[in-house]
Design a protein around this nucleic acid. Structure first.
Lengths: 193, 193
DNA sequence: GGCCAACCATACGGATCAGTATGGAGAGCG
DNA sequence: CGCTCTCCATACTGATCCGTATGGTTGGCC
């Protein structure tokens, strides 16, 4: 057998990053309450003893996981769209992007439900502020005055937040085509030609 | 002393309705997790023994409380506005109403966070469906075709849901005047003249 | 005035979960 | 070979909370 097994054998021997990823997965799937040390341990095939070696406390895990999520979220969503020159088209592209990439929103939707916790709140505040500022800036560049741009951004972001909440209820019971039509109307209403 | 003390002495001796009201209050203030029997008992100055005489289980209390809330919500919000003849003005009035009466939304916002629970989900579904249908109907009467009316209603309701979520974060950090201006823009965008 | 039913206290059982204490296996290195 | 550091298992404590069992108190009613 070849020696030099640098990073093989992902079977046993976990790292902190493994725990963080598992935490984000179950957070997205089952909510913050499901991010429990013993549950994650079972899910990873180990016991609590492993966890408390990598992290001091449950909150430390959540904190680290969310910092990871916040960073990747910013890099993967907003950053690529900043390149779009025309501000109107930039917002349109943003709407299309977020409307066609569900998995990332699951974490945000889960966090939204635990926003009353002091541990979670700052994350919601920061990412929301960044996103609203992003859209506000685009609307401003598109010719709207400051307050109108801000209000339109607020409306757009509120509609986004509300939608991902209602989507879990299956409330806007729409087919794929109906959803696409909704997105088109969404854009049409918020970004007049 | 006059006999005939029909309903005096509200000090001791609770009724099921008292528990339901207390449940709704703490639900609105501290979320569903805070609706715990022992906590409510302390809050009401009694012990668990009292609770389990009035209700079989914690879920029974929540169920009863939410049925009470759902009924009063429907009566106090949508019903009075149905009288407004002009559909455009009806939606405008609805928006003004809900934007100026906070306390009732607290229960809905709290429920939204626990929508994954099978006990809560039906309530969210029913009230959301009713509200969306209400607005859709108004937009339809205002001259929009069926799908456009539905999409505008979805957008309006999503924006509402998202706003009450973000409001708790203090995210749309607005003064009173800014809020009023936002509502005006909200109406202006959704209901073109 | 005594009985009955509504209402509540006390005390316990059982489940869940965060965190601690402690010891053991396993790889690398001298 | 043996030591040590990393990583994990086992076992326990303590807190919280739902639900049960049971007995006590109070008000109305015959």
């Amino acid at each position: 057998m070849p020696a030099n097994t640098v990073k093989l054998e992902p079977k046993n021997r976990l790292s902190a990053a493994d725990w963080e990823q598992a935490a984000l997965d179950t957070l997205a799937e089952s909510g913050l309450a499901a991010v429990a040390v013993e549950a994650l341990a079972r899910q990873l095939g180990v016991t609590k003893g492993s966890f408390y070696w990598h992290f001091a406390t449950r909150e430390a895990l959540i904190q680290a996981s969310l910092e990871r999520w916040e960073h990747s979220d910013e890099m993967e969503v907003l950053a690529p769209i900043e390149a779009v020159a025309d501000p109107r088209e930039r917002v349109r592209e943003l709407i299309r992007q977020v409307s066609h990439r569900r998995p990332s929103h699951a974490v945000f939707a889960a966090l939204l439900k635990s926003v009353d916790l002091p541990l979670i709140r700052p994350f919601i505040e920061r990412v929301s502020q960044r996103r609203i500022d992003f859209v506000t800036e685009a609307f401003h560049q598109a010719g709207f005055d400051a307050t109108t741009a801000a209000n339109r951004a607020r409306l757009a972001y509120s509609a986004y937040v509300g939608f991902i909440q209602l989507a879990q209820v299956g409330q806007p019971r729409m087919s794929h085509d109906e959803f696409e039509a909704y997105i088109r109307d969404f854009i049409e209403i918020l970004i007049p030609h």
